Computed example of a mutant assay.
Amino acid sequence: MPKVIGLTGGIATGKSTVAQLLSAHGFKIVDADIAARKAVEKGSEGLQQVHALFGDAAITENGEMDRAYVGEQVFYDSALREKLNAIVHPKVRELMEAEKNAWLKEGHHVIMDIPLLYENNLEDTVDEVWLVYASESIQVDRLMARNDLSLEDAKARVYSQISIDKKSRMADVVIDNLGTTLELKQNVERLLIQKGFLEPYSTEE
């Protein structure tokens, strides 16, 4: 019976890397970020609604959503963020649901890659939740390095989500990403063997 796994974490915990590792083992990835981009792509109804809410500054010269501008507007304004979510989230769910069902129909295990799974109360839409864990200090360090952010900005982004420690207590499975990429790969493979998705490696010659 194909399984639906919710994959989540916090910003800069390494969730995308885990999604790539799972994809290499045959899981089909349904990515919330890709669906969110499709929901407001050029010419879409979603983009028209964003334009109506934020004005001309929210649209780039080539007719796409200016993600940086919109992100800045909603980051410190929760009321505006809720209005944006009311536009985007229903469309994202519809797109993800259709993709998930298509893969399940073909008999594949599906990973629902949802960064804000707990923030949006989506844990009941999957069979299990797997969380990629890195400490908050590691999240901040990785964010500063990856996005060239100040300490203050990196912390603001980390603290805008439910804390990774709280999420880890809610998840069915916690995937440790405190170490190297190789250690993460080994942790994922151990989990897949434990869950019966992967055959244990033979040590015989």
Rank of each mutant, 00 (worst) to 15 (best):
T17L: 14
S23D: 13
Q20P: 00
L21S: 08
I29M: 02
A12I: 01
I29H: 01
T8V: 08
K28E: 13
V4F: 03
K15E: 06
G9Q: 07
M1Q: 15
T8G: 05
K15D: 03
S16Y: 01
A36L: 11
Q20A: 15
A35S: 13
I5S: 09
H25F: 07
A19P: 01
D31C: 07
T13M: 03
A19K: 06
A35Y: 01
Q20F: 13
K15L: 03
G26N: 10
D33W: 00
G14P: 02
L7G: 06
L22D: 02
A19M: 06
G26K: 05
I29E: 01
I29N: 00
D31S: 12
L22A: 11
Q20D: 15
G14E: 05
G14H: 09
A24S: 15
L7Q: 12
G10C: 02
G6T: 01
A19V: 09
I5K: 09
F27E: 11
A36I: 01
I34V: 15
L7F: 05
M1N: 14
K3Y: 14
L7P: 09
L22N: 07
S16C: 07
K15V: 03
A35K: 12
G9I: 02
A36T: 04
G10Y: 00
G6V: 01
I29G: 08
V4K: 13
G10W: 00
S23E: 15
A36E: 13
D31L: 05
L22G: 14
S16Q: 08
V30W: 04
V4A: 08
G26E: 04
A12S: 06
V30S: 06
I11F: 07
I11Q: 04
K3A: 06
H25K: 10
H25R: 15
L21E: 03
G26F: 04
G9W: 02
L22F: 14
S23C: 15
I5W: 06
K3N: 12
I29P: 01
T8R: 13
L22E: 04
P2C: 14
K28H: 00
K15H: 08
V30L: 09
V4Q: 05
G14Y: 09
L22P: 10
G10H: 00
M1T: 15
T8L: 02
S23V: 10
I34F: 10
G10D: 05
K15R: 12
G26T: 07
V18A: 14
A35E: 08
T17E: 10
A19F: 09
I11S: 13
K15C: 04
A12N: 02
K3M: 10
F27P: 09
G6Y: 08
K3T: 14
D31N: 14
A12R: 02
D33N: 12
L7E: 10
I29C: 02
A36V: 02
K28S: 09
F27T: 11
L22K: 03
I34K: 15
I34A: 14
K3G: 02
T8Y: 12
K28Y: 04
A36F: 11
K28L: 03
L22R: 05
F27N: 06
K28I: 06
H25A: 11
G14W: 08
F27I: 15
T8F: 05
V4T: 11
I34H: 13
T17N: 02
S16D: 09
I34G: 04
T17V: 10
L22Y: 07
A24N: 12
P2D: 11
D33I: 03
A19Y: 04
G6K: 10
L21G: 07
A32W: 01
V30T: 05
S23H: 12
